[in-house]
């Protein structure tokens, strides 16, 4: 079973599979996620791809327990996610950092999950080193550049050594340099054994990072295939059009 307050208790075998069954999310009468069923078992990078409004963020939010299904289920290894779970972290497109030092931002996250204070220095130093922020540890978080802020955002997730990291369009607001460093970080995270699920509308990014692709369009799952198959022989007309750079019409 999952433990919410210990950070090393769960191996990835425990977090996966992610099982989504007949998931519906409706708001104001609009079906924003419409009957999604899928299973993710592989411990690498899954990219949720699709145009704006496809339901990518909503699916990620549901996977972190920030949204509740109107119908159907989403479970990590038979467990319904709650935002308090320390084994899983969520990265927003635009980070909201606290008005305190980089280090204090990381201490805050550890304190939220009741981590023993004697472990703070080693956990924080490791996260800072991984994200290249060691030199900026005492700097105020709010004065960092956009790219540095997003790296701190990722450090804030990483410091808990989560089994799963969910990222919602993590580079949408960054320049090419910032994007490259975040993509590099995401690859490192995956290589070290953390399951990554991220959304993007950027085909190039999906191509560079994805092991498998969930292609959403208008709240429906159009394709779930390996990245190789998706880019070489997309099964659906919608995906073919998307890859070809055509505007997608409503059904």
């Amino acid at each position: 079973m999952l433990h919410t307050n210990t950070i090393t208790s769960m191996s990835n075998i425990d977090a996966l599979p992610l099982q989504v069954n007949n998931l519906h999310i409706t708001k104001n009468g609009n079906a924003l996620l419409n009957d999604l069923t899928l299973t993710i078992e592989s411990n690498d990078i899954t990219v949720i791809l699709g145009p704006n409004g496809a339901g990518k963020s909503l699916l990620l939010r549901t996977a972190h327990g920030l949204e509740l299904p109107n119908q159907g289920t989403l479970r990590w290894n038979a467990t319904t996610p709650k935002p308090q779970n320390a084994w899983r972290a969520y990265i927003f497109q635009k980070p909201v950092l606290l008005r305190r030092s980089v280090r204090a931002n990381l201490e805050y996250v550890l304190s939220l999950h009741g981590i023993d204070k004697t472990n703070y220095p080693s956990l924080i130093d490791a996260a800072l080193e991984h994200t290249g922020l060691s030199q900026l540890a005492e700097r105020n978080a709010r004065v960092l550049s956009g790219g540095e802020q997003q790296r701190l955002n990722i450090a804030r997730a990483w410091v808990l050594k989560p089994n799963v990291i969910l990222l919602d369009e993590p580079t949408a607001e960054l320049d090419p340099n910032g994007t490259a460093s975040i993509e590099h970080l995401i690859k490192t995270i995956a290589q070290e054994g953390t399951k990554v699920v991220m959304s993007t509308h950027d085909l190039g990014q999906a191509h560079r990072l994805a092991n498998d692709i969930l292609f959403l369009h208008q709240g429906k799952l159009v394709e779930h295939t390996s990245a190789k198959v998706f880019f070489e022989k997309p099964q659906s007309q919608t995906a073919q059009n998307f890859i070809a750079g055509k505007l997608l019409n409503g059904d």
Binding site: H64, L66, P83, Q84, N85, A86, Y90, F92, P95, V96, L98, Y108, V109, L112, H113, R156
Partner: peptide, 18 residues
Amino acid sequence: YYEQLRALGAKASRMMKT
């Protein structure tokens, strides 16, 4: 702050202090 603090796992009383 609300969405961010909630996603980090903060409970209501902690959110208030923060």
